[in-house]
Write a protein that binds this DNA or RNA. Structure first.
Lengths: 207, 207
DNA sequence: GTCTATATCGGGATAGAC
DNA sequence: GTCTATCCCGATATAGAC
């Protein structure tokens, strides 16, 4: 999408995304955002009431995007492992596609003023709850190991989110390769199964 | 440690840690830091050359702490799994003990000016390299599954680091409980292995 | 819808007394 | 080593013309 094929409102938001991600919300001057969008700082106020509104719109849009996609995945499959794999892929795809946007979501919660913070946090809570339902269901159906659902969801979300901080589209690995690696790490862990194999003796004894 | 049992220099740094973590580096006024430390803003300049120096000292101190402790662990054990477990425990213990400090390290890299950024990033690179050596060694010795060392280290570090954002000392789980959970997640993953599925009794023991 | 001009404020940093 | 007073700048936001 070329700059002039978007509305000025979208241009401004895109510039804000770029600068908030690069310098942080407080360190990104409205003048610089305006410059990238090709207008004067004062003109921003025709499209947005204030700087904070830019931040809220970025966060809201992308947290909703995340929630909608995860809801779809949960509804479109019944198999716990398939759901998990789709959830991982979806999380990583969105976080690499909207790298800057999710980096802002991840690092600028503190910059949200008043009610905005509670609102965005509620969207994040919704996402975590969906993921926790997915994990709990898989445990109850004997597909996942029994473990603390909250902790497992935090760990999984954290590692997948962080991909956005190091992933480069021109880099050594494609998004799909990264997804496969994370699926395996999350499902099977680091340990070579042989290393757990000594336990098979115990199994044989039990059986 | 009571405030008046520390030097003013330490008081100022502690106040900076508190406010940088709560509001972010740019949003934390030097005047507020001074107020918590019990002096006037101008007096800070007797102890530190500028605001940036506070940030650099916080980050440097704690990245060095992390590196020194991981180096010790790597040297004090030869067993890959034991090394991994110690590294996980060390990372989580430091990140929960110095919660605010590591939260700052994790979110304010962008606020570092000039050479400071490269310097702190080099300390972080050292830590990642140590962790990657640990993982690579474990793979070569057939204890860990063969997988991308960099990706595995990023994933592991990210999930352990993020504990600092949700952990509460008065919360439901103790640090040592969290460490056990993360060790298991990292080593074995979420999936209940079919091979060890019959071990219902043993799984119940682990919880 | 965008501009120029400007109000207003808060922040980091400095000067110099004590 | 800490204070008061102040400089100076950059930032958000507003007013009003075009």
């Amino acid at each position: 999408m070329r700059p002039d094929s978007r509305s000025m409102r979208e241009n401004i938001l895109a510039a804000a995304v770029h600068l908030f991600a690069a310098y942080g919300y407080h360190a990104a001057p409205l003048r610089d955002i305006a410059q990238i969008a090709g207008i004067q700082a004062a003109s921003i106020y025709h499209h947005y009431p204030n700087k904070q509104a830019l931040l809220v719109e970025i966060m809201e849009t992308h947290m909703r995007r995340l929630n909608v996609s995860l809801e779809y995945i949960v509804h479109s499959s019944q198999d716990p492992l398939q759901r998990l794999n789709e959830a991982i892929a979806n999380h990583i795809r969105l976080h690499t596609t909207y790298k800057d946007e999710f980096f802002i979501v991840d690092t600028e919660i503190r910059a949200l003023e008043g009610e905005n913070r509670a609102y965005i946090l509620s969207l994040r809570d919704t996402y975590e709850a969906l993921m926790q339902d997915l994990l709990r269901d898989g445990m109850e159906r004997g597909v996942f190991r029994l473990c603390d659902v909250k902790v497992a969801s935090y760990a999984m979300i954290a590692m997948c989110t962080e991909v956005a901080t190091w992933f480069r589209p021109e880099g050594r690995l494609s998004v799909e390769q990264v997804i496969l690696m994370y699926r395996q790490l999350i499902a099977e862990g680091l340990l070579l199964s042989q290393a757990i194999e000594p336990q098979q003796g115990e199994i044989a004894q039990q059986i």
